[in-house]
Amino acid sequence: MGTMGHEPVPCTIKSAVTLQVGDVRRELGRPGVVVIDVAFPQPIDLQEMVFKNYYAAFLTMRVQRRRSLNRGTEGPLQWVTCLQDYCLMPNPHTEDCSQDYVCLSRDQMFCDVDHVATMRLILRQPSPVWFNFSIEELRFYAQGQKIPQKGFPSWLSHPSPQEQPANLHEELPNPDKVSSEVQKMWVLTEMLQASQTAARIGRFDVDGCYDINLLSYT
């Protein structure tokens, strides 16, 4: 994913609202639509959004953006639909893709998603099989925020075997054997680190002394 290594845009994600006909407590029917509103403190030029699906089948996305007029003046805020019934689960009745991570970039939207101030995500789930549905771990990344990929680490581009220095000392120990032993030593250390426990004895003292505040009169 291209989003690794930079920070998501701060935003306020309001809690999901389920839309249902009639009284939620008395009606037996399951809600088929969930609406999530997102507010950005600063309007953003959306590059991509990432989230984890939780049994939502279709996603419609509407954004409130400010159209800049010709002479650079700011126009009124207006709502536009930038995604209509985007399919998150190919078959709403089955588990497929029900908990996938989804990444939507601006190329997939119907219109420009610049100067976005508010966003409304409308999730639909026509199947009554699922008790509830939502999307989770919602994150937005703004355009131009991408940090350019750093150069390859030197160990990735280190001299390939044919560039190996030919003028090694005669008396040098066999590098293959040395390498194999050193690697084994590394593996042992690494393995031990991997099997560390979180268990503790629960000592209170630091270097043999107790913090006076830990002592009580009881």
């Binding site: 160990w155 090694l168 000392h169 040098l172 590098p175 390498s179 050193v182």
Partner: peptide, 24 residues
């Protein structure tokens, strides 16, 4: 793991040892 594999490969070790022996 990849990084360590490269660092502890024969080439890198040979280089390190060679450098250590630079004054003969």
């Amino acid at each position: 793991y990849l990084e360590v594999g490269s660092k502890l490969g024969p080439d890198c070790l040979a280089l390190a040892m060679d450098r250590a022996l630079v004054d003969r």
